[in-house]
Structure formats: structure tokens, C-alpha cells
Measured scan of single mutants.
Amino acid sequence: MFKRLMMVALLVIAPLSAATAADQTNPYKLMDEAAQKTFDRLKNEQPQIRANPDYLRTIVDQELLPYVQVKYAGALVLGQYYKSATPAQREAYFAAFREYLKQAYGQALAMYHGQTYQIAPEQPLGDKTIVPIRVTIIDPNGRPPVRLDFQWRKNSQTGNWQAYDMIAEGVSMITTKQNEWGTLLRTKGIDGLTAQLKSISQQKITLEEKK
């Protein structure tokens, strides 16, 4: 169930391209415009997507990853294993993690069937560096609404905000991946996880038929 919630949630996290980005210092504006741009692209490019579902990787690479804190999220997933990894191991892992996100997020976007969304009203940021933004996803086919909290983090150097995690039903996506990959990290280390991520990233994206 959580895996499905995570995939549905990713439908609204794909941010804007650099040329049309919203105010990078306001995570609420980023979330709002990102959702609108993403849904528009999914709707307008269905012919290309249906002809070649792996085209979704391109959308992810162009529109999402430049505005997601990939390395920060990847380091959180590694936890204690990050500090013990060599620079070469980290570089290989982050490259594999990025390719994994292209496949995983692309597969999530393949679930698009006309969903709509509501974003919580903007709250004062103050001096906060981590801000959760509640998004409610509404399914046109009558499924119950899904309420999610996207975690946005302020870059201490640039002042810009980027998304790095999502919490559904009190469970963090980062925590879920830590639990899912924990045994592999304990037995085969970061190299074993890197190899698995490379394998997963090679899987073809498949479209979910409308139910």
C-alpha cells in the first residue's frame, strides 16, 4: 500500500525546468507551479508516452532531478554507511541512485490517469530550513484521497528550496528505503546496493492501464 502511495505522490513532485522555475526561495510556489507544469506535460505528451513509456525517463531527467536534492536524499538512505564509504564508492552510488530515480519516478508518472491535487495554504517560513507541505491527491475514479507531506529543505548556501522526502501515513519514503535496503547494505555494503540500483534502473517502464 505504501509503495502505491509513494508512486501516486511522485506525480506531483516533478519540479519546473530552470527556464520557467518559480521563486526558488518559496517552496509553496515551487510546489504549486511544479504540480501544474507536471500535470500539463503528462496530459499533453501522452502520444509520446504511450508510444514509448521510457520517454518518461527524459521527462524526469529534464523536469524533476535538477530540483530534487538527489545527493542529500541518497546520503540519508545510506545512513551510517555513508561515512564509511570511499569517495569513489559515493560517486558510483550517487550515479546509480540518480539512474534509479529516473526509472522509479518514471514508473510513478506512468500512473497518471487524470488525477488532480490540492496544496495546503502557504504558511510563514520564518527562519525554518525544513518545511512540510501537505498535498491532497484526488483520484477521478473514486479512490479515497491521498494526503501527503512533502519535505522541502532550504539550501544554506543559495537560499533555494528543494524537495527531498515524502511522508505518507506517518511513514517517510527515506525511512522506507532504509528499511528495504538495510539488509543488503549490511551483507554486501554500498557496492552491493550500487549494483542492485544499476540493475533496477535497467527495467523498462510500463504503463498502468486505467481501472
Rank of each mutant, 00 (worst) to 15 (best):
Q48N: 13
Y112V: 03
E63A: 05
E180V: 00
E208N: 10
A92S: 14
K154P: 08
I200R: 08
Y55F: 14
M111P: 04
K3S: 03
N141H: 06
L109I: 01
E45K: 07
G182T: 15
R186K: 02
Y100T: 13
T38A: 06
I167V: 06
K71H: 06
I137H: 11
S199Y: 14
R98V: 06
A120C: 06
L64P: 01
D54Y: 10
L30E: 11
I190K: 06
Q162S: 13
D127C: 10
W181M: 15
N52F: 08
T25C: 09
S201T: 11
P27R: 02
Q115N: 00
W152P: 02
Q202M: 15
M111I: 03
I167L: 05
G142I: 12
G192W: 14
Q103P: 15
R186D: 00
Q203G: 14
Q48A: 10
D23V: 09
Q69H: 11
K29Y: 12
E33D: 08
V12F: 14
T116S: 15
Q203H: 10
I200W: 12
L78W: 03
P124F: 11
K128Q: 07
S156P: 04
Y100A: 12
D149N: 03
L125W: 14
N44F: 07
R57F: 15
A75M: 01
L184F: 05
K204N: 08
D127H: 05
I205G: 05
E33Y: 04
Q178K: 06
I205Y: 14
R57G: 14
A35L: 12
A75S: 08
M111Q: 04
K37P: 12
V77L: 04
L42A: 06
I174P: 15
L11H: 01
D139S: 06
I133R: 04
V68R: 00
D127L: 11
T129S: 09
Y93E: 03
E45F: 06
A85H: 06
R41C: 09
V135K: 04
A168V: 03
F2L: 13
K102V: 14
L10V: 07
I137M: 12
L76E: 01
K128L: 07
I133G: 02
I174D: 12
L30N: 05
I137W: 07
W152Q: 02
L109C: 06
T206D: 14
Y93H: 06
I130L: 05
L56Q: 14
R153P: 00
F97R: 00
V131K: 09
I167W: 14
L193P: 05
S199I: 13
P27F: 03
R50K: 07
D32Q: 10
Y164M: 04
N179L: 03
S201E: 06
S17G: 11
T129M: 08
V60R: 00
T206C: 12
N44I: 09
M173E: 04
M7N: 01
R134Y: 01
A75C: 05
L184N: 06
V171K: 06
Y72T: 01
K3R: 03
T194K: 12
Q151R: 05
Q115R: 01
R41V: 05
A110Q: 10
M31F: 05
K211Y: 09
L65T: 09
A120P: 14
G106N: 02
T58P: 15
T116Q: 15
Y55D: 13
G142M: 09
D54T: 14
P66R: 04
V135D: 02
Y112F: 02
D40P: 14
V77T: 08
G192A: 00
Y100R: 02
L10W: 12
M7T: 04
F2D: 00
L16W: 13
V135T: 03
I130N: 03
N52E: 10
A92R: 13
L193S: 03
G126W: 12
R50S: 09
K29G: 12
Q202E: 08
A34Y: 14
Q203Y: 15
R57M: 11
V146P: 02
P144Q: 06
A73M: 06
I200L: 09
E91N: 14
V171D: 01
V171F: 00
M31V: 02
I174R: 09
E91V: 10
N44W: 10
V77P: 08
